[in-house]
Design a protein around this nucleic acid. Sequence first.
DNA 1: CGGCCGATTATCT
DNA 2: GATAATCGGCCGG
Length: 202
Amino acid sequence: MLKIDFYERPAPLLAPDLIGKKLVRLQNGTRLAGIIIETEAYQGQEDLACHAHFGRTKRNQVMYEEPGRAYVYFTYGMHWLLNIVADRFGHPAAVLIRAIFPVEGQELMALNRPNLANSHQWLNGPAKLTQALALNGSMNGYDLTKPGAELFLEEGTAVPAELVNIGPRIGLGKTPEPWLSIPWRWELDWQQAQNLIQKGVK
DNA sequence: CGGCCGATTATCT
DNA sequence: GATAATCGGCCGG
């Protein structure tokens, strides 16, 4: 299990390091897990795309707390999105988990999210993976570093940096420049993930 | 495959 | 009262 010092740095530094890490969720004792293959960084009040842009609110409060917590919020009237809090206490920052490659507990994940199971479009979106991992607002503020946690990260698979695509963040709507174009999104495509992961790990 | 659009409601102005 | 760090269905090529 990764400890708090792994998370305690600005989101644009943490986000690329999360690619290849294994996200583990215990659902009634069953391990559900996927390798993280897409992330986005949201850093500080000065980042106009960050929820902390307008200062501290009830919703974004968790972003100001200890790193290594889950920031789970509701959007578009129906979707839950999972972020991992970054940076030091008092500095609002988080990394959005946008996609995972499933490696454990796929049967249960398919029950949680039956629609497209076994297609490569299965877990390639932030609201898709929260469904598969049975995550919702009840996990907001959850400490991923505490002993016995039911949501945490493991070391996972080493991913060579040259395989990771970098580009602007997605879905930012009318966020003004230059924030709209900042390359704070990191992604390993599905095929590359499959090549890497199915070599060693089961 | 790509673009458009409706769903649906907590949160913030 | 408007908007949203999205998704899935439907359309056309």
